[in-house]
Design a protein around this nucleic acid. Structure first.
Length: 444
DNA sequence: CTAGCCTTGACC
DNA sequence: GGTCAAGGCTAG
């Protein structure tokens, strides 16, 4: 017979009481856990009032328990097991005689007997949140997170301000206490954990198709072309010899020259864009120059690997620490890495998002020396709407806002960060810089 | 899939 | 502020 969780749960028909006698009697005695029939009763519900002894053992397997889970005292693993399985429609089948012993050692052997025992000790599947309740919960989390962290720029500014105010940023030697390597996403190493954008788990996204925006043919085509352009240029890595030399980035000028590849790719990128071709030549150059630094920074986020705290390049991995080494600015390193992590946590590896952000950077009416500012603004609007619609098509109307706002926040971050990087340029000797970089960065 | 650890909101 | 009990994340 199958251990039909549904029927067992709803009817409380666990007939063979001896089935779990070996362990349940002891557990029952130790923790005065409610019997199945007691648990059907409403008396069982105000469980917060029930003070338990410090020592708690799982009613299912006897492992150490922290407290109640789904109306019964269980360990973490049985809690997770119940959550994963109690709502499954598929009936679990015991391969033996439906009387497997479930203890710490054997709990994994027979899911059917394990789930049966879960119900037997009073675990209640009604306490597992359903889709709408989970969604509600997640919305609350996101809402609170947004309240705690209203805008990203403010926190970046605090970082920068702190560094400037303390005036310690010029030296990395002897200043190790200021250098805090970023922690991998989701992990903390004693320091206050970073608050990064959290993606909505796929299973929480609405199943209803009407909750998603459908991109028009025109929009799909625009996005496809834009992403293709980005993929072929800025997102592409050239085939190069596999040599890895950290030493190559000893000076800030080395970093600037390293960015030349990015600038060349950027020039290729804009050549793909019909909107860009419509600008006057002067505006093309102005838009390019104004967005070089931001383009380099956004691209660096694309190639940043959070877990390794490094950028992947054709020459191998470059640890983020080279920023400190080559520039001497601890704050530059901290803020740049923080930026990369935030972009990455929001966009992950979605090239549509990167290419849309790239378009928004390029067609920025705030750029210096533009003659057709209004026209550039109109183009930017088009990509802003496309970004919004894309988020709605991917994450549903329910959740798109968080993604859209986060994406725009990353653009604000860029403004601050690129200004900060401009400081590096002041300490670069123009003699060491390649001619193309001298030109696009207006270095003399 | 499991299981341990983490994050979080609700409640006290 | 502390505790409890949900769900989330992820190494194994």
């Amino acid at each position: 017979m199958a251990g039909d969780s549904d029927s067992v749960a709803s009817s409380g028909l666990v007939s063979d009481d001896e089935m779990f006698a070996s362990s349940s009697t002891t557990i029952n005695d130790l923790f005065e856990r409610p019997t199945t029939s007691e648990c059907d009763d409403a008396v069982c519900l105000p469980r917060r009032k029930m003070k338990l002894k410090d020592e708690k053992l799982c009613g299912v397997c006897g492992d150490k328990a922290l407290g109640y889970n789904f109306n019964a005292i269980t360990c973490e693993s049985c809690k997770a097991f119940f959550r994963r399985n109690a709502l499954k429609d598929k009936t679990m089948v015991c391969l033996f005689e439906n009387k497997c012993v479930v203890d710490i050692r054997t709990r994994r052997f027979c899911p059917a007997c394990r789930i049966k025992k879960c119900f037997h000790i009073g675990m209640n599947r009604d306490m597992i949140l359903d889709d709408s309740e989970r969604k509600k919960r997640m919305s609350k989390v996101i809402e609170n997170r947004a309240k705690r962290e209203p805008t990203s720029t403010s926190s970046s500014e605090i970082h920068i301000k702190t560094e400037i105010d303390t005036d310690d940023s010029m030296s990395c030697e002897g200043n190790t206490e200021l250098i805090r390597p970023p922690t991998p996403y989701g992990k903390s190493h004693g320091d206050k954990p970073e608050i990064l954008f959290k993606h909505i788990p796929k299973h929480l996204l609405p199943a209803n198709k009407s909750m998603y925006y459908t991109l028009s043919l025109e929009e799909s085509s625009l996005l496809k072309d834009l992403t293709h352009a980005y993929q072929e240029t800025l997102a592409a890595m050239p085939e190069m010899g596999p040599y890895s030399e950290e030493k190559k980035y000893n000076r800030a000028a080395d970093l600037v020259n390293h960015s030349e590849i990015c600038v060349r790719k950027m020039i290729l990128f804009v050549k793909y864009l019909a909107d860009f071709k419509l600008l006057s030549q002067d505006d093309q150059i102005a838009a390019l120059k104004a967005s070089v630094m931001k383009t380099v920074l956004l691209r660096s986020a694309l190639f940043y690997i959070i877990e390794k705290d490094a950028w992947i390049t054709p020459k191998g991995e470059i640890p983020s620490s080279i920023l400190k080494k080559s520039t001497g600015f601890v704050s530059v390193h901290n803020n740049h890495v923080y930026y990369c992590r935030r972009v990455k946590s929001m966009a992950q590896d979605d090239l549509h998002i990167y290419s849309l952000l790239q378009a928004l950077i390029l067609f920025d009416p705030a750029g210096l020396n533009l003659t057709s500012r209004e026209y550039v603004s109109t183009i930017q609007d088009k990509y802003l709407i496309l970004l919004k619609h894309y988020m709605e098509s991917k994450f549903s109307y329910d959740y798109s806002r968080e993604y859209y706002v986060s994406a725009l926040d990353r653009l604000s971050d860029l403004r601050v960060l690129s200004e900060e990087h401009a400081k590096i340029l002041l300490q670069v000797n123009p003699v060491d810089v390649e001619p193309l970089m001298l030109e696009v960065l207006n270095l003399k």
